[in-house]
Simulated assay, not measured.
Amino acid sequence: MGTRDDSDEAYVVGLCERILGESALAQHRFDWLLGDPGANGRRARPRRRHPDRRHRALKIAGSSGVPGPLLRSTLPTVPSIYRGPADRRRVRDWCLQRLGSWDVPHRRSEIRTEAGVTSVLLVGAEPVASSSTVVLVPGTNTNGAVCRHLTGALAARWPTVVLDVPGQPGLSADVRPRRGRSAWYGRWLTEALEQAVPGPALLVGHSLGGAVVLASDSPRIAGRLLLSSAGLVRLRVPMGVVAATVPWLARPTLPRSARLLRRMTAFDERVPDELTEWMTLVARSCRSSLAPPPLPPELLARRRSVPCVVATGRHDVFLPPQRLGSAAQRHLGARLHVLDDSGHLLLDESPDEVVALVARALASAYGDGA
């Protein structure tokens, strides 16, 4: 179970506060809901008696289906991204069906990590230890099944692996810790790379994926490409995006998903139907998943030892060039590349430009990007 601060209720209330410019009266106590005054003059909330106190415990079943020990309900520290088991199945079925319709050669496998099962999508040629592998780490609310156009373009030139991030909707484990997520994601990626690629890798991280890529210190990382990356600076959330997000969360529909997605594009353009369908499913089936805070400056300073290319869309509503550029230079010593015709959804808006940036990053890291 997640904390109240992590709930969809708290997220929507926070968005409404920003739109209205007023503070909500959260967790307010209504006197008329309390009991009559006692001998000491104080009112007590009526208590509901439970004849069986075993309701306080949860029976946890392992992956084998064998029941585990009884645990207090306050102990779980990894709330699921999904609202329930049926939602998890719906998301998984959607992703598998989407992958089944791809015309790009691919192979999916699963590996086990500290963070649980991780989906590994291999697109194109088989990676070998003697040459570079491009590893894509998607961002918030995305996964390999949603990245068909970009992965196909990458696989035409290099062996490409896509890792579904645990704790995000997709085909990897659905759990995530309440605290210390950056370090947890870093350990996950380091472990996943050891199993998923046989040699050095260029990591491509978008949005949340960029923060995950920065959090890992795996020796297999020969270079990083950060696309509209979290982890360097806090994301900016303009009122137009907030106004589109509230109805999308409150009552998800295809038109509302399309409206929100258009807010993230460069010119408020029409977005692909499959992306609109996906985001509608996410809002109906998943809990809120917010962007991570900036990583510690001392950690970012250590990442200077590996070549890094940083880029964002000129019209990115969350990480505009003027916001991300100074942070990239300050923390990583990297010059920001700006994609003129892109917003935050640059994986879908400008796949050819992203491929060119991958070639640039490979040339910087290995000298074999051409």
Rank of each mutant, 00 (worst) to 15 (best):
V233S: 13
R234N: 10
R234Y: 06
R234A: 12
R234Q: 07
R234P: 03
L235D: 09
L235S: 14
L235T: 06
R236T: 12
R236I: 13
R236D: 14
R236Y: 04
R236H: 14
V237G: 00
V237Q: 12
P238Y: 10
P238L: 13
G240F: 10
G240V: 09
G240P: 02
G240W: 07
V241E: 02
V241C: 10
V242L: 12
V242C: 07
V242D: 11
A243E: 14
A243D: 01
A244F: 02
T245G: 01
V246F: 13
W248V: 07
W248N: 09
W248G: 06
W248T: 09
W248I: 08
W248S: 14
A250H: 01
A250F: 00
R251G: 07
R251T: 09
R251D: 12
P252D: 04
P252E: 03
P252Q: 10
P252C: 08
T253C: 03
L254I: 12
P255G: 06
P255C: 04
P255W: 04
R256F: 02
S257M: 04
S257H: 03
A258I: 01
A258D: 09
R259P: 01
R259T: 10
L260C: 03
L260R: 14
R262G: 00
R263K: 10
T265G: 05
D268E: 12
E269M: 09
R270L: 09
V271Y: 01
V271E: 01
P272N: 11
E274L: 05
E274W: 07
E274N: 05
E274Y: 11
T276E: 14
E277S: 11
E277C: 08
W278K: 06
W278S: 06
W278Q: 08
W278T: 06
M279R: 13
L281Y: 11
L281R: 11
L281D: 06
V282R: 11
V282G: 06
A283Y: 03
